Simulated scan of single mutants.
Amino acid sequence: MAAFGTVFMPHMAFTTFENNHWNEATIVASDSIQLHPGAHVLHYSSTCFEGLKAFKHEDGSVHVFRMDQNLNRFDQSSRLLSLPDIDQAQVSKMILDIVEQYSADIPEPPGSMYIRPTHIGTEAAIGKAAAPSISSMLYVLISPVGDYFAGGSKPLRVLLDETGMRCAPHMGMIKSGGNYASALGPILAAKRDVQADQILFCPNGDVQETGAANFLLIDGNEIITKALDSSFLHGVTRNSILTLAADLGMKVTETQLSVDELLTRAAKPNVEAALSGTAAVLTSVGTLIHNGKEHAVGTGEHGPTTQKLRQALNDIQWGKAPDTHNWLTRVG
């Protein structure tokens, strides 16, 4: 099986913003785009993207999960980067059209079709370090993917970092390439130095997020995570898991969580921790590494509540449970 996100369908949906309006969307070859070497995105990182999935149900129908939420965030990211405002109706149609074209290529669950809308500034102007691009390009790539943990997942090892942060605080809720680039160096160092799978950024002791996922703590019947602010990404999977936790009668607490409180709670036997994101869904954290010392989270193994919440989400995505929140958009 190819590595997650490395196989692409040969065509994608594509449009451009020029002369103050969006052009009609078309389907083009996925390797067909051209950029001027002076394009704004290549010099000043005017780029944002989304990640969402389409699932094939047993009756053969295809459904995109929470597209409206991803489009809202895509719109927000574009505005906060001073890119042209997207046309949500147009992008919605682009997503549905390209997924429908390749519906026969969507793997059965636990596989899915990963969808990557991308918006980049294209104006050739290297003098615009402090000004936005007046032209842009928007395309929707799709990639058939299997289970993110095809080889079987082990509970993650996560390093708590109280000195750095994933990205500039005012950039946290933008899904932009630069945020991932800024976290890459520390993550690679953590993998090399303490064999961590990820870093949980906790500037000044404030537990925030990892390089590519939101963090959730489960203490008995309570699920705890950082309250939304501009410093970190407002995950669609995070929101979905919290909604399902409330449906199951759990207490949902969105608050400031300190490193000290996290380590104190993690020592209790019935505590679990997890990372949430589109690719990995919900993944157990077994070990927290802090100041050179390793702390098991609860038993250090996969948590039963984490697995129950993951299954509840998968069951909706796969059409095995009622979609009571209207999260699915049918294709075709």
Rank of each mutant, 00 (worst) to 15 (best):
T6Q: 10
H11C: 12
F14E: 03
T16H: 00
T16W: 00
E18K: 15
E18S: 15
N23D: 09
T26M: 09
A29S: 11
A29G: 12
S30C: 11
I33C: 06
Q34C: 14
L35R: 00
H36M: 14
H36L: 14
H36V: 11
V41F: 11
V41H: 02
V41Q: 01
V41E: 01
V41A: 11
L42T: 01
H43K: 03
H43R: 04
C48K: 01
C48A: 04
F49V: 06
E50D: 06
K56D: 04
H57T: 05
S61L: 09
D68M: 08
Q69E: 12
Q69I: 02
D75W: 13
D75N: 15
D75Q: 15
Q76S: 13
S77F: 07
S82G: 00
P84Y: 05
P84A: 02
I86Q: 09
D87R: 04
S92C: 08
I95D: 00
L96I: 14
D97L: 08
V99S: 10
Q101C: 06
Y102N: 12
S103V: 12
A104K: 15
A104V: 14
I106Y: 10
I106G: 03
P110E: 07
P110W: 14
M113R: 06
R116E: 02
E123H: 04
A124N: 15
I126V: 15
G127A: 10
V140K: 03
L141E: 01
L141W: 01
S143H: 05
D147L: 08
D147P: 01
Y148G: 07
F149Y: 13
S153E: 12
L159Q: 09
D161P: 10
M165S: 07
C167Q: 08
A168K: 13
P169S: 08
P169D: 05
H170F: 05
M171D: 00
G172W: 09
G172L: 08
M173Y: 03
S176T: 07
N179L: 12
S182V: 08
L184H: 05
L184Q: 04
P186A: 07
P186D: 10
L188S: 10
A190M: 06
A190I: 05
K191I: 12
D193I: 15
V194A: 05
Q195I: 01
I199H: 03
L200W: 08
G205N: 03
G205K: 07
Q208D: 05
E209F: 10
E209D: 09
L217F: 10
I218H: 05
D219I: 08
D229H: 01
R238T: 02
I241V: 12
A246H: 03
D247N: 13
V252C: 14
V252F: 13
T253V: 15
E254R: 13
T255M: 13
L257F: 04
V259A: 04
V259T: 14
V259H: 05
L262Y: 10
K268I: 02
K268R: 12
V271M: 12
E272K: 07
T278Y: 03
A279E: 01
A280Y: 00
L282C: 11
T283L: 11
G286K: 10
G286C: 13
L288G: 13
N291G: 07
A296Q: 08
G300W: 06
T306E: 02
K308V: 02
I316K: 00
W318H: 14
G319T: 12
K320S: 05
A321W: 09
P322W: 07
N326A: 13
W327H: 01
T329L: 13
